[in-house]
Design a protein around this nucleic acid. Structure first.
Lengths: 329, 329
DNA sequence: AGGAACAATGAAAGCGATTGCATTGATTCT
DNA sequence: AGAATCAATGCAATCGCTTTCATTGTTCCT
């Protein structure tokens, strides 16, 4: 009993393999009688088309690659889920690769994926633009949170939400702020810093820039320590993970949040809600980010060499417990 | 300029395609002169073997499937990373699928993966044993945190670590305990409950069983609320996520940890260190779990129908700040 | 020197699907 | 009725690679 193929089915049904193939791909070309018989036999034999064989002739793997810069960052799970869901709906599987925060690994993995997938999504790449461009040459590719003229991209833009965050803090009486910058290789970090600087300048408030810090809990603790050396009463952390580090550091030193200092994060990952105090942050539209990325990629795959698309989704400010009135010291 | 194949290379080198193929698969069979020439031309042309074509004849996809019950659970990222790393070392890619906590989805995905992968790892399955057995029929498969006689499994056994946790609490003067049980479909939950019951009985201390609660932050809050209705001064939460919920609930009600109550988690996920107070918990040997799972799977793939292997790795107790002396009320 | 053993290579048969083209009746049109 | 059209199906080539078997020189014995 070897694995059933279109041939074994064809034989059992007294038709040709071509007909069996058509039953699955272009059923309208096959007479209802034959169609049903083939379907029945296929089910009975537990037939499953061989993806390798199919892929060999169609040139499609029905699979997309997803490279994330660091899977342990709580930002990704929801994104992965959303991408997976959308891909599945389009009939594709997802090959996930964790680059473990290494730019070199990102590029290496794109190369390795080539041929096994129809296209790739690179989420929050750390690689240089040139490296990415080179690595993606001739391979449908969508960048997440990294703009690049000649490659499609889907970005989450938190500028306006960060403005709101600023206003929220300002209303609470804060006048002196700290910007805890994220990794310099991250576009999101640069973008957020820029937004906050812009807001502070426009508002005419004092802004102390610290960092860059790594986008990890530890990086956050360092940021927290640095923060305490300034007079800032409110701080913008690069993301929620960093913010949690800040919170932990402050708590460890007996500094009350939001009593003594206010902290805002970014991304609204699970952590943001579970930490105490819960984080005031900016919610990223994960579901849409993932879904759009897959859709764009699908388009790129179907029309290779088409013009790159660029999408930009806004984050949403959400106030929780890590921000409050300025301490009256 | 279409994609280079072994034929284009063969032509350029004045040899046959078979020779080119051998250069990549059995280089010792090819004369050094030819070997080098082929390698050079291949590099020059940017040749990459077509995995579909290769897979068609070898019957191998060089890919393993990884099904996780819920990718948003912080337990998984490190596991995924470890599995990925090991798989890569063995020359395989990983196809990740998130079952979104649905038992039905797990089974469905195993079916969908069949043919695209050489074998699957199912992590913390929620499906019934019968369903799993059926779904994995004829497909190399390794279960993570779920024992099943006829399927290979890799388990993390926290029994002795939980004993230690109990002793640790006992030393701090606790005499009345609560067991906040996890989801009933989870083997780990059952196992942990059993361990704790065993310890309490042996120690002759009072143990109140509560739950089952869902393995989510919310479930933890409910558990926390339930805990407060008992006189227990120390609680064993199912996992860290639940424990964090408990912590949040207690904090919200002004109950001090570890001042009023002590809490221990399990798994030692990132969260455990980031939450305040940091969680006393049991560290799961993620790296080993993942690595062993892949190795076992590889063996199953190479010798299909071989006897299933069963591995059991112990967790390690680690004391942090969520446990302390019994309150002197 | 004649044959055995061996190293290096090529020819060709698949692997399991898809798909363009040809074939065959049946139906419709004039 | 004969031509044209069309629906249903089969034939056979093809995708790119691996692998068995056969072939051809070389080298090594005795």
């Amino acid at each position: 009993m070897s694995k059933p193929t279109i041939y074994s089915i064809a034989q059992r049904c007294g038709v040709s393999a071509a007909t069996v193939s058509r039953v699955f791909n272009r059923p309208e070309l096959v007479s209802p009688r034959v169609r049903e018989q083939v379907t029945a036999v296929a089910r009975e034999l537990g037939y499953l088309p061989n993806p390798a064989a199919r892929g060999l002739v169609t040139g499609r793997a029905e699979t997309i690659g997803l490279i994330v810069s660091d899977i342990t960052n709580p930002f990704f799970p929801l994104l992965v889920r959303s991408i997976q869901r959308t891909a599945e709906r389009m009939g594709s599987s997802v090959m996930l690769v964790d680059a473990e925060e290494s730019a070199a690994a990102e590029v290496r993995h794109v190369a390795r994926l080539r041929g096994r997938v129809d296209g790739v999504i690179v989420a929050s790449p750390r690689s240089s633009s040139a490296a990415l461009r080179e690595a993606a040459k001739g391979l449908p590719c969508v960048l997440l949170n990294r703009p690049l003229r000649d490659l499609s991209s889907v970005l989450c833009d938190n500028t306006s939400a960060l403005f709101e965050a600023g206003e929220h803090l300002h209303k609470h009486g804060h006048r002196s702020f700290a910007l805890l910058a994220g990794p310099s290789a991250s576009w999101a970090a640069a973008r957020r810093s820029q937004a906050i600087r812009g807001w502070a300048r426009g508002r005419g408030v004092e802004l102390t820039e610290l960092g860059p810090f790594r986008a990890t809990f530890k990086g956050g603790r360092q940021a927290g320590a640095a923060l305490l050396e300034t007079a800032a009463t409110a701080a913008f952390a690069f993301d929620d993970l960093t913010a949690c580090g800040v919170l932990a550091e402050l708590a460890g030193r007996g500094v009350a949040v939001p009593g003594d200092r206010s902290v805002v994060g970014c991304d609204d990952v699970l952590l943001a809600r579970t930490v105490t105090p819960s984080l005031t942050t900016v919610t990223a539209p994960m579901d849409d980010l993932g879904a759009i990325a897959v859709q764009v990629l699908t388009r790129q795959i179907e029309a290779p060499g088409g013009a790159p698309e660029h999408h930009r989704l806004p984050g949403v400010f959400v106030a929780r417990d890590s921000t409050g009135p300025r301490s009256t010291s």
